[in-house]
């Protein structure tokens, strides 16, 4: 079953001069797929990822996630959509430094405010436990190591049971040990929980182990 569909997506940069960065992207991602977007820097893979993330709305073509057409929606609707359907993991963890680990993980769910605070708390603790960082739950997030922070970021991405997790170089800042750890977590999520993951990476070894590799070159999907 498809969870993400794009039709004829084109995107231009206008600075310093007009330049087509994405060319006729037609992409379909199925539920439970572990997909990696690869290519040389400047090929447009990150740009495509941010279009898919709904944060970038300046494109032509159509984007559909979880059966909903997202092209042309208002910013506020897209924010709410992201909150419920997409989880993010970035290269630099991007935890909120003034908050504890647990507060960071709870934040998207508190924003959604669909469940009671206690339930969200239990769920967040459970996520932290499965990712092996529950003993750090009450520490300020900036006191953790890079690998630990990235696991907390994954827990945060998962808290609202999103349809897709999108990652921008999730292992780009990690050592080999933690890279393997993060990969294993993703592998487990996709195979056991049928979680869809789209990740941008330039780590070929990491990409080679994923279910599907989308190779990009000069703004086009090559493979």
């Amino acid at each position: 079953m498809e969870v993400l569909v794009t039709r004829q997506i084109n995107k231009y940069f206008y600075e310093p001069e007009k330049f087509q960065v994405l060319k006729e992207i037609n992409l379909t991602v199925n539920r439970g797929e572990f997909l990696s977007l690869v290519g040389k820097s400047g090929c447009g893979k990150s740009t495509l990822m941010y279009v898919l993330s709904t944060m970038d709305t300046d494109y032509e073509g159509q984007l559909e996630i979880a059966g909903q057409k997202l092209t042309g929606k208002k910013q506020d609707e897209l924010s709410a959509f992201r909150n419920e359907h997409i989880g993010f993991v970035f290269q630099f963890h991007y935890l909120l430094p003034e908050f504890t680990v647990l507060q960071n993980v709870m934040m998207p769910a508190l924003k959604q405010s669909k469940y009671a605070r206690e339930d969200i708390r239990d769920k967040a603790m459970h996520r932290l436990k499965t990712l092996g960082v529950e003993e750090h739950a009450h520490k300020p997030s900036n006191k953790l190591s890079g690998g630990q922070q990235q696991r907390v970021a994954i827990a945060r991405a998962l808290i609202n049971d999103p349809d897709i997790i999108m990652c921008d170089e999730p292992t780009g800042n990690l050592d080999t040990y933690n890279t393997h750890l993060v990969f294993d977590i993703f592998r487990q999520l996709t195979s056991e929980s049928n979680q869809t993951i789209i990740t941008v990476t330039h780590d070929d070894e990491f990409a080679s182990k994923t279910d599907r590799i989308v190779q990009m070159s000069d703004g086009r999907v090559v493979v």
């Binding site: 944060m55 910013q75 506020d76 909150n83 993010f88 998207p108 924003k111």
Partner: peptide, 16 residues
């Protein structure tokens, strides 16, 4: 700036 960006990514609207 970074915190604001991440808040927006996780679903906080401009108004929030």
């Amino acid at each position: 700036m970074k915190d604001i960006a991440i808040l927006k990514a996780m679903g906080f609207a401009g108004g929030d």
